[in-house]
Amino acid sequence: MKLIGSAASPYVRKVRVVMAEKRLDYQFIVEDVWAPDTAISTSNPLGKVPCLVMEGGEAMFDSRVIVEYLDTLSPVGKLIPQQGRERAEVKTWEALADGVMDAGVLWRLEATWTGRADDERSQAWMDRQRGKVVAGIAAMAKGLGDKPFCSGIHLSLSDIAVGCALGWIDLRFPEIEWRAEHPKLVKLMDKLMLRPSFADTRP
């Protein structure tokens, strides 16, 4: 398998962490989707990463779709429950983490996209997205509570998604001091960074 992506993308990192935890072999192909000569559209018509290309050449995209598929490939380290409320809980955690990243990406694009002049940028829009990021992180802290992991006592996709989101916020928005406000999230993040899957994919 080939994984097309960016080392800084939190969505790509989520897939890479899952692949490491599942002990799956793959080739990582770095692609800048913003470059004029990007070839991502040959694999993903939406022009986004991550994109997983199978042995036969067919492509799979969207990190949520990819990680769910990867979790079925090996019984090692099951990350997503098969059914019921437990499965819905893990997928909800993933949706929360992805929502934080989605808002952060929209905020960053509004602030930095070179196709827009400074006087064309909307501070109200950026403030709205920042509010979503902050609220999402607070919801993560509340949901984690005193549990060792987001969805109980074992590592799951919930923790991987949250860890990737928080790592990206640290990278792109260091002014958001979530560590000072949410020590239990800090404890979780420190625990995740001890795992090679997280340490080796740090952006």
Rank of each mutant, 00 (worst) to 15 (best):
Q27D: 08
L24F: 01
P148S: 11
M101N: 09
L46D: 07
R130G: 10
K132W: 08
S6G: 11
V15Q: 07
V67D: 01
M193L: 15
D127M: 09
F149V: 11
D127P: 12
S43Y: 14
I137K: 13
Y26R: 01
E175R: 02
H182E: 08
R128D: 11
R16V: 00
A39V: 13
L192M: 13
Y69H: 07
G47S: 06
V30I: 09
M19F: 03
L106F: 08
W178Q: 02
S74Y: 01
L52D: 03
G57T: 02
R64I: 00
V100C: 08
R202G: 11
P81M: 07
W125Y: 12
K132G: 06
T42A: 15
A8P: 01
V133W: 00
G136Q: 02
L96Y: 11
R172L: 02
D98T: 07
A97S: 09
S158L: 04
K2N: 09
K78N: 09
W178N: 00
S158I: 06
A88L: 13
D190V: 15
G136V: 09
E110G: 10
G104H: 03
I4C: 05
W34S: 10
P81I: 02
W93Q: 06
Q83S: 13
E68W: 00
V134M: 08
S9W: 02
D98A: 13
H182C: 06
V17H: 00
A95V: 01
A95E: 13
E31K: 04
V53N: 09
A138C: 12
G56V: 03
F28T: 05
A35W: 06
G84D: 06
D127R: 12
T114D: 13
P75Y: 04
W178R: 01
L24C: 00
R13K: 05
Y26L: 04
K191I: 13
V30L: 09
T42P: 06
G115M: 05
L192E: 08
G143K: 12
R87V: 04
R172T: 00
A39I: 12
L166M: 04
D190M: 15
M189D: 11
V17C: 05
A20G: 05
V90E: 02
R195W: 10
W107S: 10
E120Y: 07
L79W: 05
I4E: 02
G84E: 04
A20D: 04
G57Y: 00
G136K: 05
I160G: 03
G163W: 04
F149E: 08
M126D: 08
W125R: 07
A88F: 13
M193Q: 15
R130E: 13
D170G: 04
E177F: 03
K22E: 03
A35S: 11
G56F: 01
E68K: 03
L70Q: 01
A95G: 10
E94N: 07
R85Y: 13
I40T: 08
P10H: 06
I176P: 00
K48N: 06
S41V: 14
S156R: 13
G167F: 04
N44K: 12
H154M: 11
Q123E: 14
V76P: 00
V33E: 04
Q27F: 03
E110N: 06
A161D: 01
A139Q: 15
A111G: 12
G143N: 15
Y11F: 14
L70C: 01
V105W: 01
K2R: 14
H154Q: 15
E120K: 12
T72C: 03
E89A: 15
D102H: 05
L157M: 14
W107G: 06
L96D: 01
V105D: 04
